[in-house]
Structure formats: structure tokens, C-alpha cells
Design a protein around this nucleic acid. Sequence first.
RNA 1: CGGGCGGUGGCUCAGUCAGGCAGAGCGCUACGUUCGGGACGUAGAGGUCGCGAGUUCGAAUCUCGCCCGCCCGACCA
Length: 491
Amino acid sequence: MAKNDDKRFITPKSENPSQWYTDVILQAELADYSPVRGCQVYRPYGFAIWEKLKKLLNDRIIATGHENTYYPMFIPKSLLDREAEHVEGFAPEVAWVTKGGGKDLDEPLAIRPTSEVIIGVMWAKWLQSYRDLPYLHNQWANVVRWEKATRPFLRTLEFLWQEGHTAHAYEQEAREETARMLEQYSQFACEDLSLHVLNGIKSDSEKFAGAVETWGIEAMMPDGKALQSGTSHFLGQNFAKAYDVKFLAEDNTEQFAWTTSWGVSHRIMGGMLMVHGDDKGLILPPKVAPIHIAIVPITRGDNTDEVVAACQKLAAGLRRESYNGEAISVKVDDRDGFRPGYKFAHWELRGVPFRMEVGPRDIEENVAILVDRISGEKRKVDVNYETGSIGGVSIAKELDEFQAQLYERSRSEVESRIIEVASYDEFKDVISSGRGFVLAPWDGKASTEARVKEETSATTRVMAPQKPDNGVKCLFSGDVAQYMAYFASSY
RNA sequence: CGGGCGGUGGCUCAGUCAGGCAGAGCGCUACGUUCGGGACGUAGAGGUCGCGAGUUCGAAUCUCGCCCGCCCGACCA
């Protein structure tokens, strides 16, 4: 917490991004800690952001042909144990229920760390013919992973997410599904959250436990660390074989299904907050901002009622415009007893994209002051206080531009911080100084990756789409390079 | 899980070394004056000093155990 004798301020982001993040989450009233370590409460404003984000992603999932479902959170131990690699990967983080109704349970129940298992079990029950496929299911759920170190949104014991699970008759179809959903995630980050991410396949060591391939979107945080923000897994027939998900094919042979799974959690919301904010607090992309415009009345003496009435008129006019399919969301801050400057800071902290100021002079001149959260610049716009309509500017267009500007800022920031290096020494320097990601040729060997991690804390995040040129050597081993990989320390 | 720091009114903290009436500023409530970048006055409300044991005539303060948070590492989304 920033220390100040008489005001509640946040730590400047430039000074300490980590502390800034904690300060802003608490003070903007997005979330708070619960009595249980590592768990968080979503306060109304924070949950409103999550719900906006959730709707946008859900629309994409439904538009690509998936159906929402809900599977239970308890998984019997014997079922979890069936996929060896999967259970080994998750064992340290699983929470168990061992008592119910005051008695010890015959069999402990895992609280889902993810749902491949329970879904596989149910599919085995339903699936008979290739004609039943594909299964294209999604669910919005909470999951529990008993993490050691936690931070609001970025890593919590219980977290909210969406997990898609699909089963296909053909390998190629499952591979295409994996790629398709990765692309949806990437577009969601870019278009809806104004967040530039890097897409690619993960190395074996970074792969989901039980998957054949894991693909991911990686975001870059202000300290140069990577945040894995979404993953899409090609599971091959691994889970189908473990849970007996099979069907009769066209040629009357019994075959195992090819499955995929893909997930985005509330972590991506934390990443979005961390990337866009500044020293004054949050900056929200309009598509996920619960409030688009805060109107602050500037009153003087006994004209309060008159000015507030003008603000209400203006708000009603603004709400008649729509943005991204919904009415523009406007808040008139008519709280008594707070001066304008306090209200400005209040809404800036909360990341509201635009503010309008309406004072007696403005009403006389038929104008209002419009201020955007990125630049903080004030400009006059024409307002008809009889009808509440504004002239000269389209707020919907302003919001679109705000959204695009945020993305452009994120994109250029990330691109300028992807650094190609000539030597391992230079690599170490970039990683330890937090300058960004390193794009480097890598021989594809787990042993090399492990050594780099040991020595620098950096891991491969995803493989770049381009392959190394012929004859290019691995930066670390000198062997022939297999991939161009993005390296970074990660959250 | 290691290392460091911390937990006293809603918030930030003083008080702990050296045991002896629980404090300050901000915030909150009421009223008044204010209001174009974090206003001011007056009067109030608000505390099992993180939890549990122990030592003591007496514990926020000493001892032991535990819980929680932050920062930095290791591990994982």
C-alpha cells in the first residue's frame, strides 16, 4: 500500500508494478481476500467486469457451434487415477473431500482441478456411434488447485473459468478444433480485451498433463514476465482410452474418440488489468467496462439541483446510443459532499474510459467537457440540454477508438520488447533485467530447456510460427535448432 | 515450499526494545460552509490489539504453537 498520511493513493505502477496491482485491485474494489488463504471474493465492480468478459467469450464459443453444459465438481478418486500422466501432473494440487454427512466417505472425492475425467466418464456412457460425434461441449465453472503462492485473479486456489471439451471421430477434426479455439482465444484477447498475445505450441515440459499437444496464448506483463492466458489441448486418444470413450465407426470397427480441451480463466482478466493500467489506476477496454462514461456535476452554491438535472438529461441522451450491441453505460456521480477532483480520481482509479464534466458555465454555453482516460485531455463537446443529445462527436465511435488505441499500445509494447540476442550472456541480461521476451533458436531438447530454466529462470513460452533458417544453431547447446522459441520468466 | 517483512478502530500506522488507563491521521455519521483536479469547521460513532495456550498481581508488549497477508525465489494455469 502506498503510504500517505491523509489520502488513499496507490503505489505508482512505474515504481513497482506488483504492488501497484495489489493496491489497485483492492482500492478499485474489484476483489478482496477471503478468510481462506489464496481465495478471493469478487466485489460487484470486479464481478461486473468478469461478466462482461464472460459474455464476450461465451458468444464466441457458442458462435463456433459449442453447447454449454454443467458437470459436477466432485470426482471419485478411482476415476481420477485412471489416466496416469494426468493424475501425476495434478496430484500435488488436488483438494480432497473425505467426509460427508458427518461420516468418513468410503472413497475420497477430488474437487475438480479440471474436468476431463468426469466428462470422459459420462461420454463413455453416452457415446455409441460415429453419428453421435462430434461432442462440442463447454462449461463455465469453478475449479480448485491447491497452489502454494497466490495472487488475486492471476493464481487463486479456487478460480473461475470456462473449459471446452470436444470429442471427434477423426484425428484431423480434433486437431482443427484445437487450432480453431486457440484462434478464438487470440481474437478474444485482441479484439475484446485489447490485449496483444503470442500464439503457439508449447514445449513438452510446458504441456498439459495427459495432452499430446498444448497450444497457448501468452501475454507480456509490464515487468517482462509472461502470463499464460489461455490454452488449447489436442488430447489424442489418451483420455478416450483411459475412460473408454469409444464408438462404432462407419466400417463397423470399434474406435476410440479423439478429444480436445481448452480453457480461459479469470487469470486473463488479471493480465488485462495489469497491462492497461497506469499510475492513476485501471484503464478498462470499453467492451468490458461496466461503466463507459462517468458524469461529474460541477455545482456552485445553490444550483446543485439544476446542474444534476442537466447531467441526468445528458446521461439519458447518451444511453440512447448503443455500443457493441448494448446501450452505452453512464453513471452520474451526484454524491453529495465530494468535490469534483475527488470524483475525477475515483473514476480514474476504476478505469472508466470517459468522463464528462458539466458545470453551470457549460450549461449556459450548451457544452460539456469530455475527458478520455488514456490521455486525460479535456475537450468541449456540444450538448443540447433540452434533449440530452450531443453534437459533433459519436460516443460509440470514441469508444471504438479507445478500444483500438489500447490494443495498439499493447501490441507495440509487446513487439518492441521481443528481443533477439546474439549470445547466451545477452539472453541472461534481457531476462534478468525484465526487458521482455527473448526470441531464440532452440534445439527442442528438454535437457537444454531445463538447464536454461535452472540458470536463468526463463522457460519456453510458445514456439514462434516461423522455423529457424537452415543451419541455424541452438543458442544454448550449439546443436541444430528445431524451433524459434519465445523465452521468458512466467507468472 | 524456502528467505525477508508484517498483522493494533474501515485504511495507513505509532505504542512492543524497557509489561501498568488503547492512541494519531485519514475514512465513516450528523449539521453547516464549499464545489472546474483528491475541501474545511463543529459534534459524534467505532477496538476480543490475527488466533490459542503459557508466564505474571497485571500482557498489544514476554514465551510457545498456529493462522493470514505482502515482497523475492522454487513449483504449477
